[in-house]
């Protein structure tokens, strides 16, 4: 499983990560290694096998439609690097 430079850069972009020119080869090689290792699962016969969704067989876990206000709203804002009027400040979005 060969991973091209373009592919690594595309994946990094989807993940909002920056990979520097001098890191590309290493990331590509690490990804190739693990993908080659992961190929092993292709030898498992999964004909007619359903994919797992979740770990337990929990179904219909619902919550009642009742308002419960979170008490410490200040604490929700305290970790922001920049805030203004109780909102999170970011560079202008066009």
């Amino acid at each position: 499983m060969a991973v091209s430079k373009e592919e690594i850069l595309h994946i990094a972009k989807l993940a909002d990560l920056k990979i520097e020119e001098n890191e590309i080869d290493e990331y590509a090689k690490n990804l190739e290694d693990i993908l080659n290792f992961a190929q092993i699962i292709n030898s498992v016969d999964t004909e007619n096998v359903k994919e797992s969704i979740g770990t337990l067989n929990n179904v219909n876990v619902f919550r009642k439609d009742e308002v419960k206000e979170f008490e410490d709203k200040e604490a929700l804002l305290q970790n922001a690097t920049e805030q203004e009027d109780g909102m999170f400040r970011i560079p202008k979005v066009i």
């Binding site: 203004e84 009027d85 909102m87 999170f88 400040r89 970011i90 560079p91 202008k92 979005v93």
Partner: peptide, 13 residues
């Protein structure tokens, strides 16, 4: 996303 009063950035609500 709200715009701030000074046009410098956006504010997330």
């Amino acid at each position: 996303l709200n715009h701030d009063d000074y046009g410098r950035g956006s504010l997330v609500d």
